[in-house]
């Protein structure tokens, strides 16, 4: 487990189910989000389908806000996973979400985010969420994050 994964997950890999619980992020953890993988500037998360997160009782479709929270978390994790030195924290500046189709009821939602450009102060990220197939996205996201670096880096 990487340092990043340890800080997000409290250092305990959960053997149950897919990925590890995000115990370092209380809201994400309460929603049941799991960290599947991180690479340099990329992250994959999964939101298990949960009756608690249904936004439309008639259809059982998850609330749009739950997808927003998943994509926001995934984008932030991608920023953190970049190998840039001295990044101590990050926060969302703006986030645009396009909702392409409802998340299929009963299916887990996956998200993949990629930090494609990082300056001293700002990171630019794009992300995709899907249920059954990546080429049938539930939503896409485009976001920018403010980067806080260690003081000795002169930030």
């Amino acid at each position: 487990m990487s340092d990043l994964e340890a800080s997000l997950t409290g250092g305990t890999a959960s053997p149950d189910g897919e990925g590890v619980a995000l115990t370092g992020l209380p809201h994400s953890n309460a929603m049941g989000m799991r960290l599947i993988s991180t690479e340099n500037g990329e992250a994959v998360l999964m939101l298990p389908y949960s009756a608690e997160l249904i936004g439309d009782g008639a259809t059982g479709v998850l609330g749009g806000g739950a997808i927003t929270a998943l994509l926001d978390t995934c984008c932030g994790t991608a920023v953190f996973s970049s190998k840039e030195p001295g990044v101590v924290s990050t926060a969302t500046l703006d986030l645009r979400i396009d909702y392409m189709r409802p998340a299929t009821p009963g299916k887990n939602v996956y998200a993949h985010a990629e930090c494609y450009r990082m300056t001293r102060s700002v990171a630019f990220v794009r992300a995709l969420a899907w249920t059954e197939a990546r080429d049938k996205p539930v939503a896409t996201a485009s976001a920018s994050f403010i980067i806080n670096r260690k003081a000795e880096d002169g930030a």
Partner: peptide, 24 residues
């Protein structure tokens, strides 16, 4: 409520919770 926190060190609300709140 504590479940809304995203950054426990500041602490700060999770941007996803705030976003969902705005949307709803």
């Amino acid at each position: 409520k504590p479940d809304l926190i995203g950054n426990p060190f500041l602490p700060a609300l999770h941007g996803g919770a705030t976003g969902a709140f705005l949307e709803i």
